[in-house]
């Protein structure tokens, strides 16, 4: 549990989306990820939570190798994921796999489940019997073997997502990025997929980066939770502590927004925090603390200085002027 398999340091990803100005063209940039650092311990589940547009998927895609970061370093088991010469070696592609949000587009609709599963097998296990491996994968995720010859449109959303998980497992990865794997599914189906993921994690010693916008779900599966807002992490701590003792005003706002279904849960919601406002466009991130447009506890300093990420108790970090030294300067 102690070995850090992934180290992300000061990661930034800016997209140029447009240019303005007639003569001196100025690029318009979206600061999708804007300086993020975190570690991931072997075997843990780090939950990454945030509203849409906060940059969660961008982090996932960078880790999976779809984009190069604008700035920052990522080390996986001590190896630089984005070395100077560009291409990610095959053995790193094998170790890091991703499950996408949309089960509908995750599988090729014109190819059978077996053909879909064969893609990573042919690349990473060319000397193995593809048929036997496919059967092993289906067994691993509890799908009947006859599913091999089905086409994706014959499967329900949950089943498609389970096949996508099987495909990610085909390379025997040690690290899986799960980008909102159940947000397109009904709650009644979600449980099956989540339980499968949890079982696979313990059976296969997997490390998860689990992205979701559902804090209640996170409560039940994550060892640690990180909250993102406008490309930055505002709070990160151990799962249990997180829900009992949320510190950052944004975290409190998120918690108080959750629709709950029992009295026990109502007690956990910070009652005084009434959600207001909407997430600003990542093109115009407010100066100072980016949450200052919605924060009920904002102070003058929040409009001038971006707060530092400080450790407010053991293993519990937050980015807010309410904590730490920067408060004095205001």
């Amino acid at each position: 549990m102690s070995e850090a398999i992934l180290e992300v340091r000061d990661l930034k990803k800016h997209f140029v989306v447009d240019h303005i100005g007639t003569f001196r063209r100025q690029p318009v940039t979206v600061r999708a990820v804007d300086g993020i650092s975190f570690d991931l311990q072997a075997g843990e589940t780090l939950g990454l939570v945030g509203e849409s547009g906060s940059g969660k998927s961008t982090i996932a895609y960078i880790l999976a190798g779809m984009y190069r970061p604008t700035q920052g370093r990522i080390h996986f088991r001590g190896l630089d994921l984005f070395s100077e010469n560009g291409k990610r070696p095959l053995f790193l592609k094998k170790e890091i796999q991703i499950v996408f949000q949309d089960p509908g587009s995750s599988l090729n609709p014109r190819r059978t489940i077996a053909q879909n599963l064969a893609v990573p097998l042919q690349i990473h296990k060319p000397d193995k019997n593809i048929m036997r491996e496919t059967l092993r994968l289906l067994e691993l995720v509890d799908l009947p073997a006859i599913y091999m010859y089905k086409y994706p449109n014959m499967l329900s959303g949950g089943e498609k997502q389970i096949v996508a998980i099987a495909r990610a497992l085909a390379t025997d990865p040690s690290f899986m990025i799960l980008d909102e794997p159940t947000s397109a599914l009904d709650v009644s189906v979600q449980g099956k997929v989540i339980n499968l993921l949890m079982r696979l994690q313990s059976d296969l010693d997997l490390t998860y980066l689990f992205i979701t916008h559902d804090l209640s779900l996170m409560r039940n599966i994550a060892t640690r939770v990180a909250i993102m807002y406008l490309g930055k992490i505002c709070e990160i701590s151990k799962g249990s502590e997180f829900f009992q003792n949320p510190q950052h005003p944004y975290t409190q706002m998120l918690l108080s927004s959750i629709p709950v279904v029992s009295k026990d849960e109502e007690k956990l919601k910070p009652a005084k925090m009434i959600p207001t406002g909407e997430i600003p466009s990542p093109v115009n991130i407010p100066p100072g603390c980016s949450f200052n447009t919605r924060c009920p506890k904002k102070m003058d300093v929040c409009f001038e200085i971006d707060p530092d990420f400080v450790e407010i108790s053991r293993q519990h970090f937050a980015r807010c002027h309410l904590f730490g030294q920067t408060q004095k300067q205001g």
């Binding site: 709650v187 449980g191 409560r219 959750i258 956990l268």
Partner: peptide, 22 residues
Amino acid sequence: QGLMDAVPKLSGGGISQGISGR
């Protein structure tokens, strides 16, 4: 019962299997 059970609770307690089938 299945639906209520399937909702992840903020108070923890794990995730139920949900309702099988569709």
